[in-house]
Design a protein around this nucleic acid. Structure first.
Length: 410
RNA sequence: GGCGGGAUUCCCGAGUGGUCAAAGGGAGCAGACUGUAAAUCUGUUGCGGAACGCUUCGGUAGUUCGAAUCUACCUCCCGCCA
């Protein structure tokens, strides 16, 4: 059912959190046509099944897709299983390693499970681009690539940069945007949504559709969500992400660790808090009537609630306040199993305990942590790296700020 | 195909025979201060129950009392010319 909201209202909704819609009047025209004919628009989203975990940065795009679905349109997810064997050069300074078919299958399944948290499965179609790309023969490839010039390809920012710096570009990498553009030709989609790193690829899709006699897709760009470090884009490989399947308390904690300055950004991109309210919050932060920490707690609640529900969000906040504000022990402390056989007269070397608990990757690291005062047992700090500690069931080992474990002698 | 340049630790990057587990910066980790924010300060960042012990400077084989540093071959990358 196509929404009967006015086109202006729809545009208003869809514009939220986008950087650019190319071109905006074409989107409007498509919406008008769809409303008149009752025929839903086809919205395309390409996913590269490389990182098996979806984080709230990806969610920005997915949530935009969800809006389209709520307005009655249809989403097609393209799992780039074929293109993953090329490796998306987007934003990459170096050539990506290739994935095996097995990895791709596993990742694609994980993806599916995760984006169902955001999208409406009933209005989501999933296609694998190997379906059409694998069957092309070399003559087809020549015919397609003949429509694109080399100058056009190397004007792409990351290629240009690599060229200038003397870093290698594989010929196959130039084919990546071509494949993605060809997906749009096959799909005959109306709109493609993507992060700004997809600018070139999506625009190329427009060109190739036009060249192929189709009505070109509208390109919608959403900003890349900045990661927890506040500097680089959120990404799994940079370890600065919040996964959509993260436990509520982890999600909450991660949000609390972001820089104050990026809060408005997160409100706009990662929550459904009305834009007007976001503006008020921003103003409140500026004139000091709102305390940044309170605002951040609200933000954390909003985000956790999207993926785990409001109740879990409340609990996560309570737990957070308990552990970090009141400095009490967390509710659930994972056990550290210590074998009776590893004890000598009931004692264990502190360094071994820390590394055996998995709190340090090596004894050297564990030793350092002890010496730097990061380790305590039952609240008592241990700084002697040679200490032999008498262990008992139920003692709580605390390392650094975040790591807790409860001794269990087995 | 010809000629030239290059590969160092998580990243960048110094290091041209011993004083090199390898400067400096980034990033990370820990501590202090805090709001698990930022900023700042301090310490730390190959392994090892730690001994000047072991393993590391693209790979292999050498030269040498001694190699990240010299030689040969190999692999990969870059540039210019064709």
């Amino acid at each position: 059912m196509i929404s009967n909201l006015s086109i202006d209202e729809q545009m208003e909704l869809l514009r939220r959190g986008t950087i650019e819609i190319v071109p905006e009047d074409e989107l409007r025209a498509k919406l008008v046509k769809s409303q008149k004919t009752g025929k839903p628009l086809k919205i395309k989203l390409g996913l590269d099944p490389t990182a098996p975990d979806i984080h709230i940065g990806h969610a920005v795009v997915l949530r935009k897709m969800r809006q389209f679905q709520d307005l009655g349109h249809e989403v097609t997810i393209i799992i780039g299983d074929f293109t993953a064997s090329i490796g998306d050069p987007s934003g990459r300074a170096i050539t990506r390693p290739l994935l095996t078919p097995e990895q791709i299958t596993v990742n694609a399944q994980t993806y599916y499970d995760q984006y169902c948290l955001i999208l409406d499965p009933a209005k989501t179609q999933v296609r694998y681009n190997s379906e059409w790309l694998r069957t092309l023969d070399f003559a087809d490839v020549v015919r397609i690539t003949a429509k694109i010039t080399v100058a056009r390809i190397i004007e792409r920012a990351d290629f240009a940069a690599r060229l200038a710096d003397g870093r290698p570009i594989g010929m196959h990498e130039m084919l990546y945007p071509v494949c993605q553009a060809y997906d749009s030709v096959v799909l005959e989609d109306d709109v493609e949504v993507g992060g700004t790193d997809q600018t070139f690829n999506i625009i190329l899709g427009r060109d190739l559709q036009r060249e192929s006699g189709l009505e070109p897709q509208v390109a919608m760009f959403v900003p890349l969500l900045v990661g927890l470090d506040g500097v680089q884009k959120m990404s799994k490989s940079l370890h600065n992400y919040i996964g959509v399947t993260d436990a509520p308390k982890d999600m909450f904690g991660k949000v609390m660790s972001i820089a104050d300055e990026i809060m408005p950004n997160y409100f706009e991109l990662a929550t459904s808090v009305p834009l007007e309210e976001v503006k008020q919050i921003e103003a409140g932060l500026k004139d000091g009537t709102l305390h940044p920490m309170d605002v951040k707690k609200r933000l954390a609640r909003e985000i956790v609630a999207i993926y785990h529900g409001a109740e879990a969000a409340q609990e996560a906040q309570a737990e957070f306040e308990k552990v970090f504000s009141s400095r009490e022990l967390p509710t659930d402390i994972p056990p550290i199993n210590v074998k009776q056989a590893d004890l000598k007269d009931g004692k264990m070397w502190i360094v071994r305990l820390v590394s055996a608990a998995g709190f340090a990757p090596s004894n050297g690291e564990a030793r350092r942590l002890v010496q730097q005062g990061a380790v305590s047992l039952d609240g008592e700090k241990i700084t002697d790296a040679n200490a032999e500690i008498t262990l008992a069931d139920g003692q709580v080992l605390h390392v650094g700020k975040l790591k807790y474990g409860q001794i269990r002698i087995v």
